[in-house]
Design a protein around this nucleic acid. Structure first.
Lengths: 168, 168
DNA sequence: CTTGGAATGTCAACAAGGCTGACGTATTAT
DNA sequence: ATAATACGTCAGCCTTGTTGACATTCCAAG
C-alpha cells in the first residue's frame, strides 16, 4: 500500500494546494496576456486566433500538409478548412497539390501571409522576450520544463517533433 | 544544417528566436493539456470552460460580486450573465442581494456547485501537480516567475490581489 | 484492372461563448 | 431631484468549434 500523503518527511518536495492554485491562476492570466497583442492585430484585420495558429505552423513547417496541420491543431477538418479558405482566398496562404501524392495539399505562406505572421510574431515574441529577460535564464528553463510536463502525451510528441526539426 | 547555432558562445543572457518560438509553442500546447481534463468533465455535464472560470473564482472568493467577477474574467456582463444564469438556474451558484448595498449581487457556490468545482479542480490540479513534481521545485519557481511577467499589467494586479487574499 | 480506403473539399446545421447596442429597474450618491 | 451605479435582459452578430453527409481524387493491394 503506497500512502503518498504522509510518507514524505521533507515537505519541500510536496506540492501544496496553494501552490497549485497559484499555478492554475497564473496559467489563466498569463495565457490572456500571451494572446492579447496578436489578438488586437488579428481583430484589426478581420482575423481570429485560429488564423494565427494556422499561419504560425505553416510558417514553422513550410510545405506542410493539411492533415499534418489538423493533427497539430487538434481541430476538425471542417473547422480548419474554414480558416484556411479565408487565408487562401485573401492571398495569405498558397495551397499546392502534392507532387508525389496529388491528394495532398502542401501549404506555404505568400509574402503577404509571411508579413502578417511576422507582425504577429513580433508583438508576441516581444512580450515573451521581456518576460524571459525579467525572470532570468534559470526561470526560463523551469518554465519550459514545467510546460512540457503539462502537455498531453500526444501533444508533447508533436512538440518534440517540431523542436527536433529546428535542431533544438 | 548550416545555421547560426554555436556561433555565439557568450550570449547566454540573450533570448534567441529559437528559444522564443519554443516558449510560444510550449504555451500553446501546454494550455491545451492544462484545459483538457476539466473540459471533458464539463462537456459531459453540458457546461463549458466559461462555467469553469466562474466556478473557480466564486469558489476562490466566496461572496464576490458580479462586477468583481466581470473585472477578473475580462468579459462583458452579457457574456457572464449567460453563464451565471445557467449556473444559478441549475442550482450550482446562489446569488444573494447585498446587505450593505442592495444593488450588488453576491455569489456563492451551493453544495452541488462546490462538488463540481471540486471535481474540476481535482483533475486539473492532478496534472499540474504531476508537472510540478516531475520538473522539480526550482523549475516551478521559474515557471511562476515567467508567467507572472507574461501577464498584462492589470491582470497581474488582479492576480496579486487574489494571491494576497490567500496569504501567499 | 478493379476496388477499398485515404486525403481533401464542401454543404448544412448547430452550439458555445465572445461582442455591441439599447433599454429597464432598483438603489445609492451627489 | 437628479445622476450614477449595479445588474439584468432582449436582440443580433461574429468566430470557431462540433457532427453528419457526400463527392472527388488518387494510391495501393488484390
Amino acid at each position: 500500500m503506497d500512502d503518498q500523503a504522509g510518507l514524505t518527511p521533507d515537505m519541500t518536495e510536496d506540492t501544496h494546494p496553494r501552490e497549485l492554485r497559484r499555478g492554475i491562476e497564473a496559467m489563466f492570466f498569463a495565457y490572456r496576456g500571451f494572446t492579447k497583442d496578436p489578438d488586437r492585430i488579428l481583430h484589426e484585420r478581420g482575423y481570429g486566433r485560429a488564423h494565427h495558429r494556422a499561419l504560425h505552423f505553416i510558417d514553422r513547417s513550410p510545405g506542410t500538409t493539411v492533415n499534418n496541420l489538423l493533427a497539430i491543431l487538434g481541430v476538425t477538418k471542417q473547422s480548419l478548412n474554414r480558416v484556411l479558405r479565408a487565408l487562401i482566398d485573401e492571398g495569405l496562404v498558397e495551397s499546392r497539390v502534392g507532387e508525389k501524392d496529388k491528394r495532398e495539399r502542401h501549404l506555404w505562406l505568400t509574402p503577404a501571409g509571411a508579413a502578417l505572421q511576422r507582425a504577429l510574431n513580433e508583438v508576441q515574441s516581444a512580450r515573451v522576450r521581456q518576460a524571459f529577460a525579467s525572470a532570468g535564464p534559470e526561470a526560463v528553463a523551469g518554465f519550459q520544463a514545467v510546460l512540457e510536463e503539462m502537455m498531453d502525451a500526444d501533444l508533447l510528441h508533436h512538440f518534440r517533433r517540431l523542436s527536433d526539426e529546428a535542431g533544438d
